[in-house]
């Protein structure tokens, strides 16, 4: 276990280094420097600015510098917000995104699993069909369109909820719904198909013949096995919520990390783009590692070390 963990962490470090190198390379492949503008700066000013951000040094030095700073979790200054570092920006905006993300995560898992259970239990009835239609629509509507429709319905046509900003519990509802919609649909389909499988197994028939009630059958016997695919979806789910947050936070004007990322793309604020990309990659990788560690706790047939081999 410890060896496995060490291996994975070492692997993660190497990947992260590769990520940093690739993103750094990409960012510096952009023709013209970050301060190239339509209106040319006077050469003296340009030189000062470049010296301030060490852009006058050879690329190799800049790279080594960047990696050294990134290793101690320092992602450098922002070009567009003088005096602010990427770390400041992440520290300011991450709590908001994390709150929204976690609420959506629980919403998606809770609603998705419940709906999937209902659909599997009432397989091939109108309950099932209704759920499946909902899920199919859920994955075929892009989240920005869904968010726009939610705003139109619940903020303008029938004004019960705020349309934007982030000022209290009521402000969470619409963005969380918009963010959770697609993952919910996906989890629902996942739960349904694996639960249908589980309910067809012999041990369920045995349990049924022993007179175990439907609720306990579903809950204690079938669901335990059926939820494993859902657990392994948590990694991709985190990634989906992250990219979803770019859109949802932008539409709802929520001051989170996702919106800041999109803004920095508009602004071509390269260090911020670079820093947030690295940060997100790190976050998602840790999430995947966590899932791989939790998995064997739930399924004793799988040990941590054997998982990779399959």
């Amino acid at each position: 276990m410890a060896i496995y963990l060490a291996k994975r962490l070492l692997g993660a470090c190497i990947v992260l280094w590769a990520v940093i190198t690739i993103t750094f390379g990409l960012m510096h492949a952009i023709p013209g420097g970050p301060f190239t503008q339509e209106k040319k700066l006077p050469p003296a000013v340009m030189a000062t600015v470049e010296a301030r951000y060490h852009l006058d040094e050879p690329l190799w030095n800049q790279y080594v510098d960047y990696v050294r700073h990134a290793a101690v979790l320092d992602l450098g200054p922002s070009y567009k917000y003088p005096g602010k570092t990427v770390n400041d920006i992440i520290a300011e905006t991450l709590p908001v995104s994390a709150e929204l993300g976690l609420i959506s995560l629980f919403l998606a898992i809770g609603a998705g699993v419940l709906a999937g259970m209902a659909a599997a239990w009432y397989k091939n009835t109108w309950v099932d069909y209704g759920m499946m239609i909902g899920a199919t629509l859920g994955v075929s509507v892009p989240s920005f369109i869904f968010a726009a429709v939610l705003i139109q319905l619940f903020a303008f046509t029938w004004p019960v909820l705020p349309a934007a900003l982030w000022k209290g519990p009521a402000y969470v509802i619409l963005p969380a719904l918009a963010l959770a919609a697609q993952p919910t649909a996906f989890i629902m389909r996942l739960t349904r198909s694996s639960l249908v499988d589980a309910l067809g197994q012999d041990y369920i028939r045995t349990a049924r013949s022993r007179g175990i009630g439907p609720w306990s059958l579903l809950y204690r016997h079938a669901l335990r096995n059926a939820l494993l695919p859902v657990v392994s979806y948590i990694g991709p789910l985190a990634a989906a919520l992250m990219t979803g947050s770019f859109i949802v936070e932008t539409i709802f004007a929520i001051p989170g990390l996702g919106r800041h990322f999109v803004t920095s793309i508009y602004n071509r604020d390269y260090t911020v783009i670079l820093g947030i990309t690295i940060f997100y990659s790190f976050l998602i990788m840790m999430m995947n590692l966590l899932v791989d560690l939790i998995y064997p706790l739930l399924d004793p047939r799988i040990t941590v070390d054997s998982r990779k081999e399959e």
Binding site: G11, V15, V19, I22, T23, L26, M27, A29, I30, G235, A239, M242, T243, I265, R268, I273, T277, Y280, S281, I284, M285, N288, K308
Partner: peptide, 19 residues
Amino acid sequence: VDILYSIPMLLYVILLMVV
């Protein structure tokens, strides 16, 4: 492939499009 799977590719699509 496993390693690439664990990092969100969309971020890199965004980066490519920025570059």
